[in-house]
């Protein structure tokens, strides 16, 4: 195989990693704090109205967790298209648009999983930390520490969803060669062109990469069990 081919595969792989990695990173920076706030038991008020709002909010987050990527891609497309409200930014068909699409997709996943992980930590852990002299922030940090397995699960699930996603980035990124083509969109293209061998190769690269990253995260998670 000639070197431009390898170069192209490499650039496609790196773009996939960059887009999904940044989407998950930014999503975690926003989603973990929000999920933590929602997950804290003391926010479940005693009043009926508070409870209703709480249930509604949780259901909303859970619904967003299952957002169809093509719908997100469509919304981003409409927002960024030249006649859309964000058209002047000229971001349509750029990696930034793809990151935005995946960000919208993975943030609810990170919020939802963080919420249940933090909610699963008993209130007694927070009280124990407070009782031992921790400040409110230190006690919250201890709850997150106890929920660390769940937080890592949030990252694993979000990254898995992002790296395997195709419909959303296809719409927002346009699948432009050397610019916005990722492993998943490249596979779609190659299949359409009948290049099955190439499509399968790209599929193997995608799987291998996903496996390597999950292996790393899982090792971190298992280490976390023992504290």
């Amino acid at each position: 195989m000639e070197s431009p081919f390898i170069e192209e595969v490499l650039s496609i792989t790196l773009l996939s990693l960059r887009v999904s990695g940044l989407a998950v990173l930014i999503g975690a920076l926003a989603g973990v704090p929000i999920g933590t706030i929602l997950g804290f038991k003391r926010f479940r008020g005693k009043r009926t109205l508070m409870r209703l709002m709480d249930v509604a909010l949780r259901s909303f987050v859970n619904t967003l967790m299952g957002l169809p990527p093509v719908v997100v891609g469509l919304v981003v497309y409409l927002l960024l298209s030249s006649s859309g409200p964000l058209g002047p930014l000229r971001l349509l068909y750029t990696p930034t648009a793809m990151i935005l699409t995946q960000l919208i997709m993975v943030t609810p996943i990170i919020i939802g999983v963080t919420m249940s992980a933090v909610g699963g930590v008993e209130e007694s852990i927070r009280e124990k930390a407070l009782s031992l002299g921790a400040s409110n922030w230190q006690a919250t940090w201890m709850v997150l520490r106890e929920a660390r397995m769940g937080l890592l699960t949030a990252i694993i699930v979000a990254f898995g969803a992002a790296i395997s996603e195709v419909g959303g980035i296809m719409m927002a990124g346009g699948n432009i060669r050397w610019f916005t083509r990722t492993l998943t969109t490249a596979i779609v293209t190659e299949v359409e062109l009948g290049n099955f061998a190439l499509a399968i190769s790209l599929g193997i690269i995608l799987l291998t990469m996903a496996f390597a990253i999950n292996l790393l995260l899982t090792i971190m998670q298992l280490r976390g069990v023992r504290g």
Binding site: S124, I125, K128, A129, S131, E146, G227
Partner: peptide
């Protein structure tokens, strides 16, 4: 506390 709580 009555119910033992320890950190992981």
């Amino acid at each position: 506390f009555q119910r033992t709580v320890l950190f992981n």
